[in-house]
Simulated assay, not measured.
Amino acid sequence: MGTVSQIPQSAIGPNLVQAQPRSKGLLALPTEILLLIMKELEWDDILNLRMTCKTLHEPSRSKDVWTELLRRYVQYSMPTPLILPRSLSQCSSDVIENIVLKSQTELVIPSSIVASHSFNIPDTSVTTIHLVPGGRWLLAGCTDGSVWYYDLDLSSSTNVGSSTQAGRPHLLLETPLSAQQASENQASVFISIDYTSELVNASKNPYKVLESFNLAVAVTLMPAGIRSATHSFHVWRVDVVTNTSDKGEPTGIKALQRLSFYKDTACVINDISIHGIHLAYCLGYPPGTTVIVDWCSVNEQAATSDSALARWYLESTAGSVSYVLKLLVAGV
């Protein structure tokens, strides 16, 4: 019997390439099948697959995969309504993945989907900040009583330098103080927002995009040498401004209507909270005392004594002022 000798490499020729070994198992499946499989997995399984090889890395970042996980989790383990930074169709895969991961675990989110932010501070000092649900708008209250906002989408490190608006504060509410008051005093500013009232009669869709909310701002002014403070309370309706030429993409927020304004006196205010027609604020003295006011009924009023405004007092309350206000509204 004759034998077949091995063909030397030199005889193959320069234009012929040896066949590469074919992928086997999971890696041999088409992308469409891989996506279907990943949609049935849990979030940690997908992250583990991502770290195995380049072939599985790309489908593990698919928007379809993470949208399916979001839809599944929102039915069982996520609070509803879920406030998104923009409509679901406008959210990127990284944004949806970030929402899912933050809702399911306390793990350290991979740096690839965490945005660090760089801000320019307004001319006056910032005393308080408040993140609007949805995670895009950051409010900043200043010592002159003004309120500014930042667009965190423009401030993310991945976009810095790509927009002249990146990290820049935008004026939402001008200072209510006169030039002399602002120069002689540093005001304390407290911020609270109510977005749940706007969603009570909304559709049953579990995904919500915040289109408007009520903003309560308390500005405390205590002139030098005077022991009592004057607190001015402002309630504004704030709307999200959209770009009609870019599929309704949000471009900013704007305070279009002041719903209520009144003044009250107290020694110290530690916190405020707004829900529906009620505005609550905690007093530093007497300690543990919460004052609740119907801000609709006291519009354009000024109180210098307890008889000048209709108030409810709750003493030695446990929990935060927002918790107390929710109990009152619920009739507990």
Rank of each mutant, 00 (worst) to 15 (best):
V4N: 06
S10L: 09
I12M: 15
G13N: 04
G13R: 06
N15P: 00
N15S: 13
P21W: 11
P21Q: 14
R22E: 13
K24C: 10
L27V: 08
A28P: 00
A28Y: 04
P30S: 08
P30V: 08
L34C: 03
L36Q: 14
M38Y: 09
E40K: 15
L41Y: 05
W43K: 07
D44V: 06
D44P: 00
M51P: 00
L56G: 02
E58S: 13
P59W: 09
S62Y: 04
D64S: 15
D64N: 09
W66I: 07
L69N: 09
L69T: 02
R71E: 14
R72E: 05
V74G: 08
T80K: 12
P81A: 13
L82S: 03
P85C: 11
P85A: 12
R86T: 15
L88R: 05
N98M: 07
L101V: 04
E106C: 03
E106W: 03
S111M: 03
S112I: 05
I113S: 09
I113P: 01
P122Y: 10
D123M: 09
T124A: 09
S125I: 07
V126M: 06
H130G: 05
V132R: 00
G141S: 07
T143P: 00
T143A: 14
D144S: 11
D151I: 06
D153L: 08
S156Y: 00
S156V: 00
S156Q: 13
S157C: 05
N159T: 03
V160G: 00
G161E: 01
P169W: 12
P169E: 06
H170N: 12
L171M: 11
T175A: 13
P176Y: 07
L177Q: 05
S178W: 06
Q180W: 02
S183T: 15
A187W: 01
F190I: 01
I191Q: 02
S192D: 08
D194F: 09
D194W: 06
Y195I: 08
V200G: 00
N201F: 12
A202H: 11
K204I: 14
N205V: 07
L210F: 04
A218I: 09
M222S: 10
W236D: 07
V238C: 06
D239S: 13
T242F: 07
S245I: 03
S245V: 06
K247Y: 10
K247L: 10
K254M: 12
R258G: 10
F261S: 14
F261R: 15
Y262V: 05
Y262R: 04
Y262G: 04
T265W: 02
A266Y: 13
H275T: 00
I277L: 06
P286A: 11
P286C: 12
V293T: 10
W295K: 00
C296M: 13
E300T: 11
A303H: 02
S305M: 07
S305T: 12
D306S: 14
A310D: 07
W312T: 12
L314F: 15
E315M: 07
S316T: 07
T317S: 14
G319Y: 03
Y323K: 01
Y323V: 11
L327T: 01
